[in-house]
């Protein structure tokens, strides 16, 4: 079937019937990959009742959608999803498969790659195609982000990669046509259902999702203690932004780990990132160096954060941040009166 053979596939993970944002992010990036490979972009969706939601995948560029809609797919389990995806791959032999590096994606990806005897590159931060060989170029951080490595998987198929949420920006494809939907029946066998989800506990987080913020004011060890974040919150409020942190601040217990930016935290790409009292360790930079504008406030003029920043303020954050707050507030009053 030419619409799927050698295609670029994106695994469209859903939870409670909704596709995750990372699916749209990967679809957006994968459009360019499919184009360079001169092939079709296909989303693969499993779930119960997902058939009605497939339009959203087409809106982000999926030209074909392989869908399996059956009760055993309602919630991800390793054996069931691996079986179905492996069978579909045998049937259609895609050239490339992308999976979101969610907890489920990082459970599924390696299990599947092992079954298919193919390579898998984890947590890619950029993707491209080698114009000479047609190989997928998968770039990822290694050694705790101290080094970037470009990985290829030249001799086995499909070429597989996982991509972390927030690494790419999701953009709908203007005027995207409807996708061709192919319903695939479940090929799951009883031996695939060896783990059973007894129940799911959602720990309701009061935390905002920092990956969606337009403006981020982030604090590190330089804040000294948890109350330092009150100051940053004030600045964030003036700018309509949200507060985030380095790992040092999270590890110190000053702020919830849902707000950690970096290699082992979240990847953010806001319009504006203001780093206050953050040294700019490579693992931190890995999570924020794609921000449009980066401001660093640090009293050490040699702090590595200044190498990543567009604007640098060398000084004590306990003087600079209040000055910013004061001036922003007075201007606000000025424009209102």
């Amino acid at each position: 079937m030419n619409h799927s053979n050698n295609a670029v596939w994106v695994f469209a993970e859903q939870r409670d019937g909704e596709f995750l944002p990372v699916v749209y992010e990967i679809l957006t990036e994968a459009r360019g990959i499919a184009e360079k490979l001169n092939t079709n972009l296909c989303a693969v969706a499993f779930g119960q009742g997902v058939t009605g939601k497939l339009d959203q995948l087409a809106a982000f560029g999926a030209q074909t959608i392989l869908c399996t809609d059956a009760p055993e797919f309602s919630t991800y389990t390793t054996g069931v999803y691996t079986r179905q995806l492996a069978e579909l791959i045998h049937q259609y032999s895609p050239a490339v498969l992308f999976i979101g590096a969610t907890h489920n994606g990082r459970d599924l990806g390696p299990r599947l790659a092992s079954r298919l005897d193919t390579g898998l590159t984890a947590d890619c931060t950029s993707l491209d195609v080698d114009a000479d060989t047609g190989n997928l170029l998968m770039t990822r951080p290694a050694f705790g982000g101290n080094l970037m490595a470009t990985i290829i998987s030249p001799n086995r198929h499909p070429q597989m990669a996982t991509v972390r949420p927030g690494v790419f920006k999701a953009m709908p494809l203007p005027g995207a046509p409807a996708a061709a939907v192919v319903q695939a029946t479940s090929q799951v066998q009883s031996g695939d259902m060896l783990t059973e989800i007894v129940h799911v506990v959602k720990e309701k987080s009061q935390e905002e999702d920092i990956t969606r913020a337009r403006i981020i004011v982030a604090g590190g060890r330089g804040l000294g203690n948890a109350t330092g974040f009150d100051l940053l919150q004030e600045l964030a409020d003036c700018l309509g932004g949200t507060v985030a942190a380095s790992r040092a601040a999270v590890d110190a217990g000053w702020i919830n780990n849902a707000r950690q930016v970096g290699q082992t935290g979240k990847t953010v790409q806001p319009e504006l990132y203001i780093a206050c009292g953050i040294s700019g360790a490579i693992q931190h930079l890995a999570g924020m160096n794609k921000a449009r504008t980066i401001v660093a406030i640090n009293k050490d003029k040699d702090a590595p954060i200044f190498k990543a920043a567009h604007y640098g303020l060398v000084g004590d954050l306990f003087q600079v941040v209040p000055a910013l707050v004061k001036q922003l507030k007075s201007q606000e009053k000025g424009t209102k009166s």
């Binding site: 005897d117 193919t118 390579g119 898998l120 590159t121 170029l137 951080p141 290694a142 982000g145 101290n146 080094l147 970037m148 490595a149 470009t150 990985i151 290829i152 998987s153 030249p154 001799n155 086995r156 490579i282 930079l285 890995a286 160096n289 980066i294 660093a296 590595p304 200044f306 190498k307 990543a308 920043a309 567009h310 604007y311 640098g312 303020l313 060398v314 000084g315 004590d316 003087q319 600079v320 209040p322 000055a323 910013l324 004061k326 001036q327």
Partner: peptide
Amino acid sequence: SPTRVKRSFSPAASSEVRFFSGTADEMAA
């Protein structure tokens, strides 16, 4: 190994920083 490292490099700092000078108030402005 199915995968190969084609190349590795340091995640280079990308930008040219512009420093502001002066007092805290001046920098803030």
